[in-house]
């Protein structure tokens, strides 16, 4: 998404984040590293692990400068260093067969497929609801409050219920996760599309009245084309929400595959690198999906003769 002019600022921000991250690794991992170093025969002050608990990580590291480089390579760190995460990702993305359970690509596809299906369901539902809301006064009064209420319920509370209820009627796997994705992604589409479908001004609507155009003609020829820029803004929010939904759907039920499952496994088995790698893979997936939507937006709006924002 970076255009020629803003590569430098982007690189600067990324570099700043990496520096802060690296600096944080030292105090975060100081105690773990000190314990490990001591077991390996290094002299650490203070000698007792219990006494060390009274020290801040930073103080401990400064008292034992020798452990500072070791904080970056601890194999079960509290905070992994950037290169450890990169290593883990590289290994699990390129080093494994993509059908293997150890492959991040495999897990990524499990999450991505649920995300995309949920996104399609949510977007379709959102557009249909918005059309109903704009054309029907009863729906305008009744649907919107419920749509808003639906988003105030914490998805973490709702997700296990959806999975369990759907599971009890025999629906498992992809669909329950997609339902959660759809649940999160329909809302921005409804809000954006209602605004978009209502964006034509009074004059535009009067013009159609002078042609004695029907409601479907008005929808098809004026309201829908006018709402396209709004739709893309909503889709970009919706796709990120759909990905979060799919991951949340994998978390509470002990799913065996997907980014959510990887995060949970890493957490439960004390393998922070696995969690972090899944976290970054999810972020990169979201960025990729957004980039595709942005490209599609620019293409579509240019094709429609409107300048992309």
């Amino acid at each position: 998404m970076a255009k020629g002019g803003n590569i430098l600022p982007v690189v600067t921000v990324v570099a700043a984040i990496l520096v802060i991250w690296c600096l944080a690794v030292i105090p975060m991992n100081a105690h773990l590293t000190a314990d490990q170093a001591q077991r390996d025969g290094m002299t650490i002050t203070p000698e007792s692990a219990a006494d060390r608990q009274d020290y801040l990580g930073l103080t401990l590291a400064l008292k034992n400068p020798a452990i500072i480089p070791l904080t970056f390579v601890h194999n079960r760190p509290r905070l992994p260093s950037p290169h450890q995460v990169a290593d883990e990702m590289f290994r699990t993305v390129f080093g494994e067969n993509i059908t293997s359970r150890r492959s991040l690509i495999y897990h990524g596809w499990v999450t991505l497929s649920a995300t995309l299906l949920g996104f399609v369901i949510g977007t379709t539902l959102g557009i249909l609801l918005a059309i109903g809301i704009v054309h029907n006064r009863t729906m305008d009064k009744s649907v919107m409050p419920w749509a808003i209420v639906s988003q105030t319920i914490p998805i973490l509370a709702l997700a296990p219920m959806i999975i369990v209820i759907l599971g009890s009627i025999g629906i498992q796997g992809l669909l329950p996760k997609s339902v959660i994705s759809a649940y999160l992604s329909f809302f921005p589409v409804v809000v954006g599309m209602v605004k978009g479908l209502r964006s034509p001004g009074a004059m535009q609507l009067d013009l159609l009245r002078t042609y004695h155009a029907s409601d479907p003609q008005g929808l098809w020829k004026l309201r829908l084309p006018a709402s396209i820029p709004y739709l893309f803004a909503s889709l970009k929010i919706g796709i990120s929400a759909a990905l979060v939904g799919a991951i949340v759907g994998e978390l509470p039920t002990g799913a065996k595959a997907g980014f959510g499952a990887r995060m949970l496994v890493g957490d439960q088995y004390g393998q922070p690198l696995v969690t972090w790698a899944a976290l970054f893979a999810a972020a990169i997936t979201a960025a990729g999906l957004l980039a595709i939507l942005s490209l599609l937006e620019r293409r579509t709006l240019r094709h429609m003769g409107m300048v992309a924002s």
């Binding site: 004059m203 535009q204 009067d206 002078t210 004695h212 004026l222 084309p225 429609m304 003769g305 409107m306």
Partner: peptide, 15 residues
């Protein structure tokens, strides 16, 4: 459809 109406603004569809 007995008349054509021209408004103060052209109101052409940009797309």
């Amino acid at each position: 459809r007995a008349y054509g109406y021209v408004f103060q603004a052209a109101g052409l569809y940009p797309w």
